[in-house]
Amino acid sequence: MVVAAVAADETVVDSAMSSTHKPIIEVRGAVKRYGEGDASIFALAGVDLTIYPGEYVAIMGPSGSGKSTLMNILGALDNMTSGKYFLDGIEIDSMDENALSIVRGRKIGFIFQSFNLIARTTALANVELPLAYQGIKKDERRKRALKALEVVGLSDRIDHEPTELSGGQQQRVAVARALATRPALLLADEPTGALDSKSTHDLLDLFDQINAAGRTVVVITHEDDVAARAKRVVRMRDGLIISDTLNKGRVA
């Protein structure tokens, strides 16, 4: 999979990797339409996207391009008007809300622009929460949460509540929460949008580290320096993918 990172410019990624791996994300003909009849708007106008395990993909585009809608569909937070979506080989588009909550808990780790930590709850409890919903025993849960907080470098802040942490620290707690469930996929929606440049740099380093450890990372962003850290960049406009390239000038 590391091969992709140094592969030739402008190569279509799908064909380069499909022969060797089973895709983790496979979206076919994704359409998302808001409204009815003449007034309807296509947020996604038929998107095909395949992502393989271990990839580090940035999805870019101006606002209104459909990148957030795509992210919500990839994260099983929203449903499509039509199309097929397989996550780690499981068909998602036909699942009911209850089954989806299990998929979200086990397969996906979310990182949001606004952190979305539970207020008045310690960092440790926040990280433990998805594990609790999966029914993992207390001791095991504590162990995994502490480990995840160690990975993001917040071992000394486990008893702090979100309001007692800086933005960068809050986002790292969110990363720890996303990692704790050992998801197949880490989905980040504008993760650096609310961070200063130092915190942004630290967070991107953390993403590199996570990806280097073998986890698939998908980042939605409109910032070029964030996209520059990814191995593959997908550009969108008006609900369609307009380019899908490997990142030749990737910053290490």
């Binding site: 809300e97 909550s101 979305n116 930590l117 207020a119």
Partner: peptide, 16 residues
């Protein structure tokens, strides 16, 4: 509502 959304996003089932 937002907190409910967060909980559901990180895998809280409806029953919980």
């Amino acid at each position: 509502t937002r907190e409910i959304g967060i909980r559901k996003a990180i895998g809280a089932p409806k029953g919980a």
